[in-house]
Design a protein around this nucleic acid. Structure first.
Lengths: 316, 316
DNA sequence: CTCCGGACTGCTCATTTGAGCGCCCGAATG
DNA sequence: CATTCGGGCGCTCAAATGAGCAGTCCGGAG
């Protein structure tokens, strides 16, 4: 820990010479020592000092839109399998979803292997993937949830079909709402042939993409779809977020509510059983919910943007 | 040499993870391999790829005013013993000289060892050192040349005295012009007691600081001090630069002219014999002359500024 | 179907590197 | 003046690393 204030210019230049030969030109320490008439130990110490004093700066360069440093740190902080943090403007949710959708589509293209079964939930961020799905290895694609009516947005069916077409696999989709007024109707729907066929494949799903919502009005299409009374009641039960409509508390623990029965889609146990569940998450105001989702056993990977990633890192 | 265009986000993040653990956190490759379930060879290849593709950026950080990267490269390109490149505005020669003077003074403070004999030539850039001379190890200080009248500037005598005071050594200075009208007068002057005493120490000088001038009107106080005819004649003999009044051609070879006889100061052979001769050089328009000086056997070290350093690197 | 070329992987072995230790020199101290 | 202390230096030995090599997988051509 040499005092760098007193290090003269000659010493600095010597350190820099050694650092350049070693780090930039890849010479071995012994060789540098010989060249400069030093012992290799001296060279090692100079390098050590150069790094400690910041003469040598090593940093991770972001590649394209991906902020690699945040990706790596977020991945490590939450023990994620995959993590992609996109550096893009986050003032417009539509633009944001488009960027994240593209990144998620790329990620799928990379990690889906032949023989995988891909599950796709529903949400606006997932829909944004649709246009960007590139060639996929052969895999069947299963619709994980019904849809909620969203004006101007496509249904999960198109997404599942496009993905299946891109992979050459089978598409298991169905027409159904995500949520029904009562358990009985939901149960009846689940017996419909197409729906049953998809549900039967849930245990085979190896990779899935889901959305995450915060359990507040306007922060989750699911939360918005229940009555005010129901939403408040569920909030009091501890519900703070939903992962593909599965409700979790602030620490990511699953919260069973009356809603579970009324859903058409994958259940908590089956979602948990999927080897890799990729969540597309965005919006710093949803940070608490996303924290819960990433902490939960449901989500194993994340695609997000820099602002939210930074926020999540502080909470981790 | 993996095609980075096709490398997906997951691969990028993996590379970045490995790079961060290795370069930023200092983990060993084997450990990283174990953690991530890879072979250490795979890790090595990822790191190699990460560096090749620019994910990992390693660069030399400039410390204070010193541009380390240029210093190192210039030093290597010209085989210099010491080289300090200062990053400072170069539109005002006075300011520039001040910065270079300070750097040179610092360098002296660092490299002068007890028992050295320090020789100081004359020039405006050398004069700028005066205020910045800090404590020096004990050494005698010898005035290497006479001075030319420069309005408003101090004489080399003050510089030599200040340096000697800073080091606690003996000061060998004298009052004499650098150049005389004829050889006979110069010869007479050299026999003056103070001058002879200084000259007698020339062979003992171990470190010296000199200036460099371009052999054109306005680019060298020496060139300006001879008659137009003489200057032109010497130019035709090949003189393109002067190092502490010693004339050299475009490639740094010493050119003997009638001037040599008329000088009071150190001669070519004796200057060449000094172990370390530091040239303070500045002004991109003098690049050709400085090139010659650095290529010559006279100069072994340099203190300069970024613009000139870059220019010199291109010529090297 | 086989065969081939290329990419990728992990092995062995020689080289390089890091950690800890004792030495030496100079400065501060009794 | 002798002593002690601290920092810088280079040594030894074990661990880390790089280079070259052979096995394997995969896709395309014959």
């Amino acid at each position: 820990m040499a005092n760098e204030k007193t290090a003269g210019p000659a010493a600095l230049v010597l350190s820099a010479t050694v650092a350049r030969r070693y780090y930039l030109e890849g010479a071995s320490k012994s060789d540098i020592a010989t060249e400069l008439g030093l012992s290799r130990f001296k060279v090692a110490r100079l390098l050590e000092g150069a790094r400690a004093s910041g003469i040598v700066r090593i940093e991770l360069e972001s590649r394209g839109e991906i902020n690699l440093d945040l990706s790596v740190r977020l991945r490590a902080a939450y023990g994620l399998r995959h993590c992609v943090v996109i550096d893009c403007p986050d003032d417009d949710d539509d633009v944001l979803r488009m960027h994240l959708g593209r990144a998620a589509a790329e990620l799928l293209g990379e990690i889906v292997e032949s023989g995988d079964v891909l599950g796709l939930a529903w949400g606006r961020s997932l829909m944004a993937m649709r246009t960007f799905i590139g060639p996929l290895n052969h895999c069947d694609v299963v619709q994980l949830t019904g849809a909620l009516p969203l004006p101007g947005d496509a249904s999960p069916i198109e997404l599942v079909r496009d993905a299946a077409r891109a992979s050459g696999g089978q598409a298991l989709f169905y027409y159904a709402p995500m949520m029904l007024p009562d358990a009985a109707t939901a149960q009846t729907l689940r017996t419909q042939p197409e729906i049953a066929r998809a549900i039967a494949r849930f245990p085979d799903v190896t990779k899935a993409v889901v959305g995450v919502g915060s359990w507040e009005q306007g922060q989750s299409t699911v939360a918005d779809a229940v009555s005010d009374d129901d939403r408040r009641e569920m909030f009091e039960l501890g519900v703070r977020a939903e992962v593909s409509s599965i409700q979790v508390d602030a620490d990511g623990r699953h919260v069973e509510t009356s809603l579970s029965e009324r859903l058409v889609g994958i259940g908590a146990e089956q979602l948990k059983a999927i080897a890799d569940v990729i969540a597309i998450v965005y919006g710093s105001q949803k940070a608490a919910a996303v924290y819960a989702a990433l902490r939960s056993d449901f989500v194993t990977s994340a695609v997000t943007h820099t602002a939210l990633a930074s926020e999540l890192l502080e909470r981790a």
